[in-house]
Design a protein around this nucleic acid. Structure first.
Length: 678
RNA sequence: GCUGAUGUAGCUCAGUGGUAGAGCACUCCCUUGGUAAGGGAGAGGUCAUGGGUUCAAGCCCCAUCAUCAGCUCCA
């Protein structure tokens, strides 16, 4: 006679079932059709009636995957997992995001199954689900080739066809360990030793002839993974440490149906189409040239114009907000970098010294020491503070060869860098001003969404951080109070601070939902000390100023890259390198087009007329491909009425306006930094 | 830096050991038009670089450089 347990269903109803009943049995008792449709189950203690709508997606950290200790009170279980206690139970259908994660994890097992059937000597690492699919880390003396993967993919289809049930089994840890050890499965041995305790019965999942150390959950059988593809193969270090041997990481993705799979690849194509490297070429914005060196950017006329517009806005805004624009040298004596500490801590990222007659020089990787020298050049009174120095400073950092990525990771770049030197009393106001500025940047450039992160020191590792406890507490308190004062929600990351001070990072979220780390506001307790910075206080004695680093674009190059992808090359009018394309219908209309161009240019608009002897359709197409905001068609009708026929990017023909009306509208949109063209 | 892939005309790409190709772009000619490609002709290439194998190399081998996908590291 077994005990009864209470199961609460999402509608709030309670059921009594025997202890050890499975979610599948419960589903069957509701309806066999439901049982056929469900994939997995979500359970939580019955007392906690949280709303399930906003639950974050299940995170498949390595720890969770193997340890069985879920951080959240809620967890996902397989349909055949016996229920032992009172629980709130939600049966997950294919439409549930967590169900897809489960299926992808199962797909990783299916891939491992296929792989071992074809290449039995392969050693397995781990195979989790990821945001977009799954992977499995494997090791083989002769690496797998892409041709091998095609065979694996084919075999996977057979494994799915066989519809092998996923069965959870428990075995004594020592037995499993010795079996794995006997087969040379060094990675599995490592994971079991790390994530399970001696004497435990450990969880394995078996499908057909394949058994894997895994705590699940899984879909009921391999047949439930209906649409999948192996996508790529790449290297990955064992345990993520580059000193360790390299494994092969085989990536794939899986869905419940072919339609979703296709949609996934279609979305990838769309992402590719807005890749800043692709658009940079198509729109002739910038290039990187092998003959000049990797990671070094050439800004072409159109990209250069956008950059100038960005920089003009930034400089103007800096001046308006009380910054002084300064300029500092690109190379400075090695001595300076010794004082700043970069020689010691940052040398790996710096270009090597150049020897000149008098001394050795190094290219600057950061602007801070230059701004500090300006500060130090004359004595400062508390009345002089705050001093805010801003510079669009070109810095050069040696990035390792495999790490460059278009505009987003380069060796030479321009920081919109500023340093604020102020008294401790002024610090809150300065931080506040920096955040206000950062928000203005995001808003002006069209980013609606962003995340704020506060990085503080790890109190347990105080020794690794420079500065007194009181300084840190004051600084962290200032950052927090300013963030809360502005009503910003933020996440705190203890231990993530730089060794020299706590910081606030602003991550913008682009139109595809991808986060980008750009703006940063950082305290610095290190450099003021190293450079012995001072100001004379009200009391007549010397004090050390507080120093704040702040960059808002982060780097002009990276910000531009993100901007290109955010807008997919269709820049708002004020940023568009070419704002108006003029299309004369035939040669007769060249003179009128010319007069329109002159008037619009006089109003500050960037205009180009297509004088080629193509048909107007072709001219419209050409401007359209260049993503020009406004295309103006002019023919007899327009010439007679001093008007233009307006075609708006992505919206098509919008009818006629007089030249004056169009000009007014365009200049208004520009002065408002408008995102839309109407 | 590591693993793997790639590098052919301005761009996108064919070309698997025997005379370097296509489409688009470019130049010229014809065409003078009403909202996303009118027609014709022409020009354009040290096949990434440097070695090697071969009677013969874009193609096979080695090295280097760059790019791409990851890993690692970062604005």
């Amino acid at each position: 006679m077994s005990n009864q347990i209470k199961i609460q269903l999402p509608d709030g109803s309670l059921r009594e079932v025997p202890q050890g009943a499975t979610p599948l049995e419960i589903a069957n008792s509701i309806s066999p059709r439901l049982a056929a449709a469900v994939v997995a189950a979500r359970v939580r203690p019955i007392a906690l009636v949280a709303s399930s709508a906003n639950q974050a997606a299940l995170e498949h950290s390595e720890e969770e995957m193997y340890s069985g200790h879920h951080s959240a009170s809620e967890r996902i279980i397989g349909l055949n997992t016996p229920l032992q206690e009172d629980l709130a139970l939600e049966l997950l259908k294919e439409s549930d995001a967590d169900a897809l994660q489960v299926a992808r994890h199962s797909a990783a097992h299916i891939m491992a199954t296929a792989l071992l059937e074809l290449f039995p000597e392969t050693k397995l690492g781990h195979g989790p689900a990821t945001e977009n699919g799954f992977f499995y880390d494997v090791y083989r003396e002769t690496p797998l080739t892409e041709a091998d993967l095609a065979a694996v993919e084919q075999r996977m289809a057979e494994v799915v066809q066989r519809d092998e049930p996923f069965v959870q089994i428990f075995q004594p840890r020592e037995q499993v360990l010795s079996e794995y050890a006997a087969r040379g499965e060094f990675m599995k041995v490592h994971f079991i030793e790390r994530f399970t305790a001696p004497g435990e019965a450990i969880s394995l999942y078996r499908n057909g002839g394949f058994t894997d150390f895994c705590r699940g959950p899984h879909v009921p059988s391999t047949g439930r993974v209906k649409a999948f593809r192996i996508t790529s193969i790449a290297g990955a270090y064992w345990l993520g440490d580059e000193k360790n041997q390299q494994l092969q990481r085989i990536y794939g993705t899986a869905f419940f149906n072919a339609k979703d799979l296709e949609a996934h690849f279609k979305r990838l194509e769309e992402v590719k189409a807005r890749d800043h490297r692709v658009l940079g070429k198509q729109l002739d914005l910038f290039s990187i040239q092998e003959v000049a060196g990797a990671g070094l950017i050439f800004w072409h006329p159109k990209g250069g114009l956008i950059r100038k517009t960005m920089e003009d806005w930034m400089r103007q805004e800096c001046i308006r907000r009380g910054y002084h624009m300064v300029f500092t040298p690109h190379i400075m004596r090695r001595e300076l970098w010794k004082i700043s500490g970069h020689e010691g801590y940052y040398a790996d990222n710096m270009y090597p010294p150049m020897e000149l007659d008098d001394a050795e020089y190094r290219l600057k990787p950061m602007n801070c020491p230059g701004h500090i020298l300006i500060y130090k050049n004359s004595p400062k009174s508390y009345r002089d503070l705050p001093q805010r120095y801003a510079e669009l400073g070109n810095v050069y950092r040696y990035e390792r060869s495999g790490t460059m990525h278009g505009l987003l990771r380069v060796r030479g770049f321009t920081q919109d860098d500023a340093h604020v030197f102020c008294t401790p009393e002024q610090i809150c106001g300065e931080i506040e001003a920096c955040l206000d500025f950062a928000e203005a940047v995001l808003k002006t450039f069209g980013f609606q969404e962003y995340r704020v992160e506060l990085s503080t020191r790890d109190p347990n590792k105080a020794g690794e951080f420079v500065g007194s406890e009181a300084d840190w507490n004051h600084a962290e308190g200032a950052l927090k109070s300013v963030l809360s004062g502005r009503g910003l929600s933020f996440q705190t990351f203890p231990g993530e601070a730089a060794f020299y001070g706590p910081k606030i990072d602003v991550k913008l979220v682009d139109v595809l939902g991808r986060p980008w780390q750009l703006s940063t506001v950082q305290f610095d307790f290190n450099l003021p000390k190293r450079f012995e910075l001072e100001y004379i206080g009200e009391d007549g004695s010397a004090h050390q100023p507080v120093m704040v680093h702040r960059a808002l674009f982060g780097s002009v190059e990276r910000f531009f890259g993100v901007l290109i992808e955010h807008y997919a090359g269709s820049f708002p009018l004020w940023l568009a390198p070419l704002q108006v394309g003029l299309v004369p219908i035939s040669e007769k209309h060249h003179a009128y087009a010319h007069s329109v161009q002159q008037r619009l240019e006089a109003a500050g608009l960037r205009v180009e007329t297509d004088l080629s002897n193509q048909k107007m359709n072709a001219k419209i197409r050409d401007f359209g491909l260049q993503k020009v905001p406004f295309i103006l068609v002019v023919g007899d009708k327009e010439a007679a009425s001093d008007s233009v026929s307006v075609r708006v990017r992505a919206k098509g023909d919008q009818g006629s306006l007089t030249v004056a009306e169009f000009q007014q509208r365009a200049t208004r949109l520009i002065s408002e930094y408008a995102m839309e063209l109407l």
